[in-house]
Amino acid sequence: MQYIHDHFNYWIVIVLMMTGFYMVIAHKNMIKKIVGLNIFQVSVFVFYISMGKIEGGTAPILADGIDVYSNPLPHVLILTAIVVGVATTALGLALTVRINDSFGSIEEDVIEAAENAEDDKTSALRAGNRK
């Protein structure tokens, strides 16, 4: 019990990570996939932030009476990772909008069916050319 309690943050990280990862793999809806990807990335942010935090530690400022500091580096790194995450989400959503415009759907199976039909049509056309 104590083990679970001591590593509480990391348990949360694993639960979030697996939830997000599962959503990316299992969902057919392109928006939901991106939501899953976001949860997956957020779990990593939490992981980095927990790693730098020391209980009772404060920001690394030189002042009297403060001698326990949290490690600020992982926190700073995650600022960068958040920016990357936002850019990825924006691009993913923009692509989804364009896909919806040209396929009329954001369900992967519908789009896949449309793509396969396209393949069949071109190969049939080619077979016709050969005759």
């Binding site: 692509l95 364009r98 396929f103």
Partner: peptide, 22 residues
């Protein structure tokens, strides 16, 4: 138009790869 879905799938897999890396 299939360039869009190709890019989308690459985005999903590429991001998973990069996240694994960090």
């Amino acid at each position: 138009r299939r360039a869009l879905t190709a890019a989308y799938r690459y985005l999903i897999m590429g991001t998973i790869g990069a996240t694994f890396y960090i």
